[in-house]
């Protein structure tokens, strides 16, 4: 099995795979603490996409992918995932305001 090295490609292709066949596509996360390895797999039993990492920053990216899949699977393959993929700029902005001292 060949691992996909680009994260963006992995995300794009796995969402495509799910949308093509929502009923038989599954998303598996495997975490091995003693080796510090994380493997993500998306498959519909015909095609298999895998991504492997040992980097903590990729775990953050995975969180977004988790959110995408939770949304797609719980709400249906046509659900809008743009709001989950963004970094919630709505929440970040108000905290900046009012902090600095104004003259």
């Amino acid at each position: 099995m060949v691992y996909i090295t680009s994260w963006d490609e992995f995300v794009e292709r796995s969402v495509q795979l799910f949308r093509a066949d929502p009923d038989s596509t599954r998303y598996v996360m495997k975490y091995r603490n003693c080796d510090g390895k994380l493997v993500l797999k998306v498959t519909d039993n015909r095609e298999c996409l895998k991504f492997k990492t040992d980097q903590a920053q990729d775990a953050k990216k995975m969180e977004k992918l988790n959110n995408i899949f939770f949304t797609l699977m719980a709400r249906g393959p046509d659900a809008d995932v743009s709001e989950v993929t963004g970094k919630e700029p709505m929440d970040a902005q108000p905290t900046k305001k009012g902090r600095g001292r104004k003259q």
Binding site: T25, R26, R32, C34
Partner: peptide, 17 residues
């Protein structure tokens, strides 16, 4: 499960519609 597998072993989590 995560706590039991810190020394050895893995945890798998699967999401499926």
């Amino acid at each position: 499960m995560f706590e039991h597998t810190t020394e050895k072993g893995s945890v798998w989590v699967t999401l499926k519609r």
